[in-house]
Amino acid sequence: MKGFDPLAILQNPEFGRMLLHGLEMTFVIAIGSWCLAMSLALVLLAIRLAPSRILEGVAIAYVSYHRNVPTLVQLILWYFGVSSLLPDQAQYWLNDHNAESIFAILGLGLCQAAYFSEDLRSGLRAVSPGQEEAARALGHGRIGALRYVLMPQAIRNALPALVNHSVSLFKNSSLAMAIGVAELTHAVKEVENVSFRTFEVYLIATVVYLVCSLMIMAAGELLMRRAAIAGGR
């Protein structure tokens, strides 16, 4: 075993480039799937608020599936399973356009949407019914009351859970490695195979992941402090 020397990795332009590329891909996957998850979560929330039993059932089934099947299995099902059902034309197009990353963003985003929508829903349930009645009495319509009165409070209530789930979405981006996306964990394995400095590479990646996660938690803390009402809960 060689002596401990993390600089041997960091100062080597080749290894540094591989790790940076990996980190970039991790960010692309995490941010892409976060945006997809959040927009889909709002749609799911709207569906559950709609007065249709059938639509509500669909939303419940969606959340139940995505919360009870492991994320890795969902990714495998998308990448190996669903892709094989697509018409040839679509498969060629996907293979030309980085299919792994597309399916990783899709799989992680669809999965996390279930968690986000549940967070928002329990945030909304915690808003007292008097708020809606008061908003309606002041002349807001149903949509207006939701948009200007209920949702701001719901999001404030849901913030801690949303931040936690955003951190786990970021961590889950490492699962994309299993379907061959060249993100940070994948880059770590590659650098390890070339440099034989396992300890140093793992340490660098662990610190990078930890710092990013702590930054998301800190940003969430700031947001919560800004969103808190003076004298409120």
């Binding site: 951190v167 961590k171 889950n172 981006s173 490492s174 699962l175 490695m177 964990t185 770590v188 394995k189 396992t198 300890f199 793992y202 990646a205 662990t206 992941y209 930890l210 990013c212 996660s213 702590l214 938690m217």
Partner: peptide, 18 residues
């Protein structure tokens, strides 16, 4: 606690494996 919360499980598995 913070390391477990902030580092992907996959990375921890690689650590133990090594």
């Amino acid at each position: 606690v913070f390391i477990a919360r902030g580092v992907p499980l996959l990375m921890l598995i690689l650590w133990t494996y090594f």
